[in-house]
Write a protein that binds this DNA or RNA. Structure first.
Lengths: 110, 110
DNA sequence: TCTATATACATAAGATTCAAATGCATATAG
DNA sequence: CTATATGCATTTGAATCTTATGTATATAGA
């Protein structure tokens, strides 16, 4: 019925922004955080998240460190210094796109 | 330097909304309108537009009529009655996504 | 005259990106 | 002993976009 999905193109910005506000997070934590913050209205699937994390890592915006917590392996991600810059850039670019499209729809901006 | 592209997922909503405001439009006109309204900052390519128009038509939200103007063929699109409802729905859904994501990007740091 | 640009439609190839499904493994609650 | 939750990850396939190309007419400029 509803399209409870991440708006395409927003995912990288969201990941980077969450890691700006919280020093380090692991994958599952990110999915749960998004769920919680949006009252379950945006569903961030793992099939989307993990490839995005790997891409951000390969681009040098994230670095990962593995830890064992309660006998389970966790992979924590944190921003590199380039990642911090990129987080701000991507958030701004996204908001600018929203502004443009909202204007195009001639609806009052948020 | 900027990614002058339509935000993925917004295209259908934009087309439907433009046709809500203007009774009928043809493809090229839509590309030029978007260009004009966004000061050339969103580039709506024909490779994206025409498939989207055809899909909206096949879904029953648009209907087309062909006219010859100055020896050139023009295909005018207009909303069906279902299309009018869908235009409102898609615009609202899009804005709601924007709101959700904007909220995600504006979490207060601890 | 010839060529670039604009108008106007459209498809094809390739890339990206995502959802859905699945897999592995551990832990706990019923 | 089984269902659910946690936690990592990949595969498959669909959708959607960019880039490039194709067809055709008209006009402005070199």
């Amino acid at each position: 019925m509803s399209d409870k999905h991440i708006l395409k193109g927003s995912l990288q910005a969201i990941i980077l922004q969450l890691l700006t506000e919280q020093d380090r997070m692991y994958g599952y934590e990110i999915t749960q955080k998004v769920k919680q913050l949006t009252a379950n209205e945006l569903h961030l699937t793992e099939g989307a998240l993990y490839p995005a994390l790997h891409k951000l890592e390969s681009e040098g915006f994230l670095e990962a460190e593995v830890e064992v917590v309660e006998n389970r392996v966790r992979k924590y991600y944190k921003l590199t210094s380039e990642g911090k810059t990129e987080a701000a850039n991507k958030a701004l670019a996204l908001l600018e796109s929203f502004r443009q499209i909202t204007q195009l729809l001639q609806i009052k901006p948020l």
